[in-house]
Amino acid sequence: MTPVEVRRGASPVILAFPHVGTFVPSEIAARLNEEGQKLRDTDWHVDRLYEGLLPDATTVRATFHRYVVDANRDPSGKSLYPGQNTTGLVPLTDFDNQAIWIPGQEPSDADIEERVARFHAPYHAALAAEIERVKDENGVAILYDCHSIRSVCPFLFEGVLPDFNIGTNDGTSCDPAIETVVREVCASATSYTHVLNGRFKGGWTTRHYGRPHEGVHAIQMELAQITHLVTEALPFQYDDDKAAQLRRHLRAALEELELVATRLAAARN
């Protein structure tokens, strides 16, 4: 299976999906323990959630699971949140701090290097190529990194996560107008909660590609899974009614981003 699937569009907005894939090569799957094989930490149905919201957006989707290698982590292995609990480039535990590998079968340094070359690097090569193409065609590119997570994960954060978690690496990864319009859409979404640069400030993708001074803007949206799943437990079933309500707000945010992109491109000319 190819590590990345790309669907090209003419919009200045790119939707990236680093954590929706569930492919695990058989030789790697054989080393996962019973808990690891459940693949709990998938961004369940996020690609389905965004499907068709911005028809002309480019999409870049990783097909491999984050337990193989995490496409939203620094390939050097550097932590995104020093001093805080998190999972690494190739996780040893899940989001509940449970071991996911059979004892003695944990990935070695050589395994990690091979997985970066085989999966992580091709995904980012494709993403980088689309960013450059979209910027060349539109004058700017807005990378919108699509994520979800269970709303309650005591190992990673206290309490209950807000529904919309907007990350711009403390405002450094995009023009302020981008941050503003997304925050305003989320704030106007009645019955939903939101936070800007809270527990999730944007992963490696947002931090690596966000170069607003060069016309490349990046923003991460981490959704609480309770907003679009029946429950945040196996089998992580999609809730059509919840999703329909949520999709209205996500569409509004993406459409606003297209308008902002037009203004930013004009300002660069």
Rank of each mutant, 00 (worst) to 15 (best):
R7L: 07
W204S: 06
R61S: 02
N72D: 12
L156C: 04
I219L: 13
V140L: 09
T2F: 07
V230C: 13
Q84V: 02
I131C: 02
I219S: 01
N169S: 15
V140E: 08
Q37H: 05
F23G: 04
Y209V: 12
M221A: 06
G159T: 08
Q237E: 15
H213V: 15
D56P: 06
E184L: 14
Q37Y: 00
T2C: 05
A71W: 01
V24M: 11
E179Q: 12
T227E: 10
F17I: 02
L196M: 02
H208Y: 11
R183C: 14
H208N: 11
C186W: 03
H120K: 09
A126D: 01
V260L: 10
V230N: 11
F23Y: 14
A128N: 13
R268H: 06
R48Y: 13
A125E: 13
H228E: 00
H19A: 00
F155V: 00
P162V: 12
L92Y: 00
V69W: 03
I100W: 10
E158D: 15
E113I: 04
N197I: 08
W44D: 08
V69I: 13
P103G: 03
F64E: 00
H228F: 12
P25D: 05
A244R: 09
L89K: 05
A129D: 14
H208G: 01
F119T: 15
R207F: 09
S191R: 12
V216H: 12
D175T: 00
T87L: 12
K38C: 08
I14T: 01
D47K: 04
H213K: 15
A29F: 09
A177I: 01
E256H: 03
D170R: 09
N165C: 14
L39E: 11
A125M: 08
D94V: 08
T231N: 11
G104V: 06
V4H: 10
A267E: 09
F119Q: 09
A117D: 08
I149M: 15
M1N: 13
